[in-house]
Write a protein that binds this DNA or RNA. Sequence first.
DNA 1: TTGAAAGCGCTAACAA
DNA 2: TTGTTAGCGCTTTCAA
Lengths: 344, 344
Amino acid sequence: MQKHTRVTAKDVARLADVSTSTVSRVLSGKGADLIGADTAERVRSAASTLGYSPDPIARALRGEQTFLLGLIVREIADPFFASFVSTLNSQARALGYQILLSHAHSDPKEALQVAAVLDARHCDGVLVLGDLRDDEAAFQTLLQREKAIVGLCRGHAPGSLYTVNSDNELGVRMLFEHLWSLGHRRIAYLDGGWLGDIRERRDAFLAVSAEKGVTPPNGSIRVVNSDMAGGKRGAVELLGLTERPTAIMASDDAMAIGALRAVLEAGLQVPGDVSIVGFDDIDASAYTVPALTTVRQSIDEMSRQALRLLIGLIATENRPEPGTLIRVKPELVVRESAGSARVP
Amino acid sequence: MQKHTRVTAKDVARLADVSTSTVSRVLSGKGADLIGADTAERVRSAASTLGYSPDPIARALRGEQTFLLGLIVREIADPFFASFVSTLNSQARALGYQILLSHAHSDPKEALQVAAVLDARHCDGVLVLGDLRDDEAAFQTLLQREKAIVGLCRGHAPGSLYTVNSDNELGVRMLFEHLWSLGHRRIAYLDGGWLGDIRERRDAFLAVSAEKGVTPPNGSIRVVNSDMAGGKRGAVELLGLTERPTAIMASDDAMAIGALRAVLEAGLQVPGDVSIVGFDDIDASAYTVPALTTVRQSIDEMSRQALRLLIGLIATENRPEPGTLIRVKPELVVRESAGSARVP
DNA sequence: TTGAAAGCGCTAACAA
DNA sequence: TTGTTAGCGCTTTCAA
């Protein structure tokens, strides 16, 4: 355990009275079949009495797998991403991998630096959670260089990035249909302003609106920060519209929570006067008053798929279709924040 | 950037027409003063044209610093910890360190494993964020072995662990005084049930109650999970008490948010019928309706202190007092969830 | 079936 | 002032 008392292959070799090469062969499994059964046994027992396990650093230097996975997250403090990181971390560890965490905020330059660091650390692969604002292209270009990369929650990422995503369009459709069936026709949208996931949702919103033959009232698409503060500010603006929307759809739950606060603060009822829906189903959404009607992204499933994909990429040379995009189905969660539209 | 095209010290040496040792000397700074100015310059320019930077893995193998910091978190998905991880990550990176993230849930056994992994990865030091339930002692024992460890948010950790904490007692006092000045005398407490931080808060609550000469009404100290679900459940139980408390203090904001929901769901007013206060000031606390009165822990400051302490530990052999405990002052944030006690 | 030796990229002792 | 050499712990030819 102590650094100075680290047990090495040499120690095991000495105890088992073999060479270090034999130790390596037995323990790594490569060429273990050529080793005499008794010798192998001796090595194994020596290793276990000594509590030996090969040093990942030495392995890395030799160019072997490091079992390190880089994780670049747009914003760890975002509750949705936080849950995601948590799940990813647990699942990765169960698969024998460790997570090297990196924050990229929204800055692609930072992401570049971070990617370089991850590369320097000999990560076997990297996960990119959430899209970065603006300079997406440069970011991608660089990431192509890495051996194995999987994007998560980045919408329909262009290029040959492997990606795992929610079916954002389906999610938005479910939400929209739900509002529609409650009689809402004047539905405003709070756009978080990102490129990937969030952009897909807005596009889907626009598409469904068009299909339904309604045009969102003038100025009712607001681009704001995708956090509670942004949601609040956006909603305040929306409430000032001459044709006040009867429902507000937000790009994500954090924004919806901000919007909820804004509407309530204005002395209006939710859902009596204005209905609100979000996206993600973060923990807090079940505890607002009224509780948020939203769409649940299956973090567990997405995480599992992403890890499977990434580890597959690491293991094999012949990769699946570049550009592979896995969509995970979201699920409508009806709670209290959306109700019948008040007849005008 | 690519693994196969990695630039090594040898490449630089060749280009600058010196030996690799000279390269090392110039670039690492150690013994750079002995090197001729022109040679040094040649090396530096060669390094920069080649875009060389020393491989941290090779360095690690040599036993040098790895600039890797292990971070063991109780629960990343917890919004307070998530913000903390975010801040820690940014600050660490600014100092040239990378964070190796690990989830320990509440399981000390898991923490042991994790600690072993971190050690194997040659982390320069490890940060432990939040206390683990139960088997604290065993956990600590093992951690003593590590070279440099700093605990965060673990209350008055015993033993010789270096720790950075909020002044939980002060925080609770401020909250209590605030409620007291609003006329509350029947104050219930929702205890998150952990050992460190959370335990300190409960102890402080008990102490202040005693000082004020009030005994919390029978059964009004509930031990529940320190999340929104726990807070909700605890509050429901509290509301069933024959002597309903006029105020509820929760171990943290997540619990307070759950409690808020419970009280509102019961058809009562907050703060009209029951006041609620939390602890932490997580993002969501400003957006509940009513917004939460709470105490803000300075994540920024705590993070800075912890990193300074840890990096100091790494750098120097002669360490500061073992058992050092740094307390960071919290700040009362008065919002809407606590109001005058209704006269009985 | 096993061992000896080389080398991954770096730094530090020892020479020169 | 600089180069040579050795070695961190591992794996993997090449030989035996």
